[in-house]
Write a protein that binds this DNA or RNA. Structure first.
Length: 545
RNA sequence: GCCCCCAUAGCUCAGGGGAUAGAGCAAAGGUUUCCUAAACCUUGUGUCGCAGGUUCGAAUCCUGCUGGGGGCGCCA
């Protein structure tokens, strides 16, 4: 079912000739939707805006959808939907298993790269954002009808494993007995050892070569480090109610054997050249080259990312590549995408987007650092939150605090703010849902049958609630396109606000006859949309608080 | 040196050409014989960083500044 504003918009466009840029009305007295189309046409037509508006309104045929449009201010056209139209729409929405979400007419294969923690390091607050945002996008894109292939690009390869394995061997550490937390301690020791002891550093570098060449003993320790790390990661995913699992793993090491092939492709196409001993790709517009292979023969992470793109396009048949990675990597991804285009790994009909998010900063406004031990681990954050509320509510608080803000800004990590339960928060939305559940439980206890028909919308609060409900499908489509979860948060908060007013002004169970039935149906529709939206945010919709 | 992001109420943030710039928090007051008070209602708050420009119209677009953060060939 196409949305009400899009139906209306199409009607206006046939008369006006241009997109009316229909917007939600900024004030209740301006109706439900407003258009500035007359203002924009006035100049080219050489006629005063209000006169243009008058002509458009006269020619417009929207009687079946709206009350007679009104011309206001300098020449705005204001539209108010008929309450019967809204009622019918919400009735249809109530019966729709998708609650008004419209599956995309052009479903895509979306490869979604997110979370990507590093092996032998605990997840810290910095990984929270990628994991939560990625999980939300996974859910939203799937709901919008796309086939999402999550890729957890875990950091399981690279030079740090040389010193890590070397440290384990030299200290005769029992790897099997390590947990993710204790493995991280070994990592920190190895890092310090690497800096302070030149001989150790040399042995660590040799160990990298051993790892890459497939030395059995080295690989065995490396593999064990991965396994204990995965236990820790999965525990965190479980607590966060994130859908990632082992089948989504696509770590850096997966591309290792493919790197020489990528290099061959790059060399044969002439994209890559040797410069100062390193294999580089120079791309116009970038003041530094992308290093594919380092002077010492090792591959940089750009090579891995190129191999990943090639794999995702060629083998996974992606139409859209999405990377949920922090904004410090912006330059890197611009360059990788440019190189991938240039070298043919990334065809023009496959889009590639970096969903860049701001960093989480410490209370001092500075970046957290794992090395200096100032990072708050993800598990300690969850522990702290769960001291203040039960797990589903604590998780809701944390996720919503993160998702409800625009992606591009850094934010200061403030646990007290994150676990707030009043105002524009996750728990508030859960509460709104639980209150609807309560009303419906009471209705059932009183022997009232489930209502499926929204028939009466006489009260302004009823109309407003129905209007907001009817906009759900559009919001989901917008988030699927723009990849901005905070718009879904804003929507659900608006919906809860409309619900609060309705709940205050319109008795449900104390009403009678068709009014009560209609309000019960409205409650059920609201509950369903809240539940759907919360689920897409990765937040549990609770029946009781 | 070059590039990117950010600057809106006391605080945290929405709004990204269109009507009188909005929320939450904090502050003050009120609401419970009434469908859950993790709720609801009321009250006050602005040099939209600064200066030009484009436009009928700029918080929004352009240019230049200022301030903060990030990035820029061998860490990933």
């Amino acid at each position: 079912m196409s949305s009400l504003p899009s139906q209306l918009s199409a009607r206006v466009e046939t008369v006006a000739g241009i997109d009316p840029e229909l917007r939600a009305a900024t004030k209740p007295q301006f109706g439900h939707f407003q258009s500035n189309v007359a203002l924009r046409l006035a100049k080219s037509e050489g006629v005063p805006p209000r006169q243009v508006a008058t002509r458009i309104v006269a020619e417009l045929d929207v009687d079946d959808l709206c009350e007679p449009p009104e011309i206001a201010g300098p020449g705005f056209i204001n539209f108010r939907l008929k309450s019967s139209v809204l009622a019918d729409f919400v009735t249809t929405q109530l019966a729709d298993p998708a609650h008004g979400i419209v599956a995309s007419a052009t479903p895509q294969v979306v490869v979604l790269d997110y979370s990507s923690p590093n092996v032998a390091k605990q997840m810290h607050v910095g990984h929270l954002r990628s994991t939560i945002i990625g999980d939300c996008l996974d859910r939203v894109l799937s709901a919008a009808g796309h086939q999402v292939i999550p890729q957890n690009h875990v950091g399981d390869w690279g030079t740090q494993f040389g010193m890590l394995v070397e440290q384990i061997i030299e200290t005769e550490t029992d790897v099997a007995a390590l947990t993710l937390a204790s493995a991280e301690e070994v990592y920190q020791q190895a890092n310090a050892h690497f800096k302070s002891d030149e001989d150790f550093a040399t042995r660590a570098r040799q160990r990298v070569v051993a790892l890459q060449s497939g030395d059995v003993a080295t690989r065995a320790i490396w593999r064990q480090l991965i396994d204990i790390s995965l236990v820790g990661f999965n525990e965190a995913y479980g607590r966060l109610n994130v859908r990632l699992s082992d089948r989504d793993l696509a770590g850096e090491s997966m591309y290792n054997d493919d790197l020489p092939n990528v290099v061959t492709d790059l060399e044969e196409s002439g994209a890559a050249v040797m410069d100062d001993g390193a294999l580089c790709v120079f791309v116009e517009g970038f003041n530094s080259p992308m290093i594919v292979r380092k002077r010492d023969g090792g591959f940089g992470y750009s090579a891995t990312d190129l191999a990943a793109i090639r794999h995702r396009v060629r083998d996974l048949h992606a139409d859209r590549l999405i990377y949920v990675v922090g904004s410090p990597q912006t330059f890197h991804f611009e360059q990788v995408f440019a190189v991938a285009r240039k070298s043919g790994f990334l065809p023009d009909d496959v889009s590639a987007e970096h969903v860049a998010f701001g960093q989480i900063l410490g209370a001092d406004g500075k970046k957290f650092s794992t090395r200096e031990g100032t990072a708050v681990t993800l598990s300690s954050l969850l522990d702290a939150a769960e001291e203040q509320a039960s797990p589903p509510i604590a998780i809701a608080a944390i996720k919503y605090a993160d998702l409800s803000t625009g992606l591009n800004k850094d934010y200061v990590f403030d646990i007290d703010r994150m676990v707030q339960t009043s105002g524009n928060t996750g728990p508030y939305l859960q509460d709104a849902h639980a209150r609807m559940a309560q009303v419906l439980r009471r209705a059932e206890a009183e022997g009232l049958t489930t209502q499926t028909l929204v028939s009466v919308l006489d009260e302004p609060a009823e109309q407003t609630l129905a209007l907001v409900l009817s906009g759900y499908g559009e919001v989901i489509a917008e988030v699927a396109m723009t990849l901005q979860p905070h718009k879904l948060c804003s929507y659900l908060y608006d919906l809860s606000g409309a619900l609060a007013t309705f709940y205050e002004q319109c008795p449900v169970l104390k009403a009678e006859g068709p009014v009560r039935d209609s309000r019960l149906a409205l409650c059920l529709a609201t509950k369903q949309v809240l539940a759907s939206g919360l689920t897409l945010l990765g937040i549990e919709a609770l029946e009781r608080m």
